[in-house]
Design a protein around this nucleic acid. Sequence first.
RNA 1: GGCACCCUAGCUCAGUUGGUAGAGCAGUGGACUGAAAAUCCAUGUGUCCCCAGUUCAAUUCUGGGGGGUGCCA
Length: 331
Amino acid sequence: MSEMFRHSQLIIQQTVVKNKMKDPVLIIAGPTASGKKKLALECADRFNGEIVSADSRKVYRYLDIGTAKPSVADRERFPHHLIDIVDPDQPFSAGEWVSKASDTVRDILRRGKLPIISGGTGFYIKAFQEGLSEEMASDQEIRAGLDQELAESSPAAMHDRLTSIDPDRAAELAVNDTVRIIRALEVYYSGGTTFTEARKARHLDGGDYRYLTIGVSMPREQLYSRINERVDAMVDAGLLNELKAVLANGYSRELVSLDTVGYKEWFPMLDGESDFEDCLEAVKRNTRRYAKRQMTWFRGRKGIQWVDVSEKESIAAFFETVAAFPGQDAS
RNA sequence: GGCACCCUAGCUCAGUUGGUAGAGCAGUGGACUGAAAAUCCAUGUGUCCCCAGUUCAAUUCUGGGGGGUGCCA
């Protein structure tokens, strides 16, 4: 018993030493339009940082206005990473983001700067910090085949099939959650192990760092009116022309990159089945819903320190917290 | 001014042959292991415009008032 105690004491000591040596990574997360960008830029300025975008849509080239990418001026002033890294018709994944972000963060640290991961794709950030199973890489061909089978049968049929292959995973999934059902089948057909088994495998993550995770928030009503205003501003800035140009360059509406709030809502108008006002309203509504889902995600995550950007004191406290964070490194 | 119709959930409306009510949309909560701005799950109490009358009982019937829409002047 006492030996076990001594042993665990040793582990704690080792952990402390290890923690002291760990490099710091600042994470700024939060719903769309909450003002992450502004805080990230200010942190880059004050704490000698570089920004790593954690955003599943800003990775695509040509989708600039609708994804609210940072301005050219801001990007020239401070390095921004993982923006414009693939064409709209190239498949992209959380795993790819994690490995690129991992390299990027290591590189920023090597240059003696503070990595600032800023973005609204909670899944990417979680995958970076906690990892993804290595044996579950995606297989586009198998997935396409399964999509085809789904189209020819039904969600229930696919769910039944998963039940016979991997009953545990099937039990976790709603019959209509076809994206995840197909994903679980894809893992099985491409690697031979079930999703449940593969999930236990070794993990691919961003690296072993000391994190300061900041959640950006503001009162719901305020966020919603900011969203509405921002959508209007995007339209004024030429959102429709951007979409039309992307389509004119041959990128299909079916692409994941265009299955994006701010773009997909205009298709009915382009087909003459809906009018401008209705589509505009749909963009606003879907952006609000997206923000709500993001809030649900981040609310459920442990270890987030929240800043209410509608309160000056809260913002001041935020900068104090960040200022104290990299400083611990030297001790 | 006259006639007709309407007033029920944030919005559009259904309904109760009198026993205090329900859809769609919006909203809200939740889940999330390589499509994640995706995908999925759950969730409907509101002076039934106001006042009075009839009635054991009125959102429902009657009368009056208020508001709206249309037509005629």
